[in-house]
Amino acid sequence: MSATTDLATAAVVPATVSTDAPVAVPGMIAIPASRVQLGSSEQHLDDVGASQHYKREWFEDEAPQHYADVDAFWIDAHLVTNGDYLRFCEATGYRTEAEQRGFGLLYGSTYWDEVDGVCWRHPGAPDDTIEDRLDHPVVHIAYGDAAAYAAWAGKRLPTEAEWEYAAHGPDWRCWPWGNEWDFRIVNCAEHWYGSPITEFKAWHAWWGNHLKTQGSRLCTTPVGRFSPASDSPLGVADMAGNVSEWTGSIYELYDPTRRYHETYERAAGRYRVIRGGSWMNFKYQMRTSERFASDPAYSSISIGFRCASSAPPSG
């Protein structure tokens, strides 16, 4: 493992990676089979709990750190874009869950708002448009919306283990590019704020200024905008920042015998896993082992997805 920081204390264990040559697929990264380190170490969670405004128990579901065997797979180098999703909807007539229910979620001055007419086609306001942002990641996507696109594309969503492997390689590292935090190379709240954020007060200062100067316009960026500086060691872009990503995995606790907060126990088996922080998040949500448990029907301005495949997709 490379140089460590106070947040990078996972044990060093040599990984076993297959040397079989994978088939090249345009737009996708071939990931070899490997034994992969997943989750966060106890020391890392202690450090995170002591470094910001949420207690360690909020992050406890990242423990225990463990190993899993992951088969070879392919993963999209980039997030699915507005342009990609537009082609899917034009070809199939598909309407997302937000379009069907009639409202989407925007973040207001204090908390979320349900705003009529907001959806992936109108991400920042009912009169917003994606026309000048076709290369940005699609948002306002529920789990079913992501899975429907993936099936149409002849792919699937990555599992949670595949996602984390693609984000940090066989061995744990805190962020895709390494263990030194650098908000200049990732689309996150601190990038736009221009300073570190470790508490609500600073986040609200940034958000309040954003609303004042840009309204509800999203801060997504063209996919791969921060490549190669923030790419994962396997060459995958935007695994931290821009938008959070649906995985295909049902949310489960890593160790059913361990004590987690009751809300995580209730979410287990019901929610799906989202990984990777978004343009609205800061340092701690950008970590490769950070877990979000999400209601499959949920969608917002900060959640998108990418696809994966167990075999080289045809066409």
């Binding site: 209730r266 998040n281 979000f292 949920y298």
Partner: peptide
């Protein structure tokens, strides 16, 4: 009664 946000964790 258990209150769970639609996105928990993070």
């Amino acid at each position: 009664l258990t209150v769970i946000q639609a996105v928990a964790g993070g």
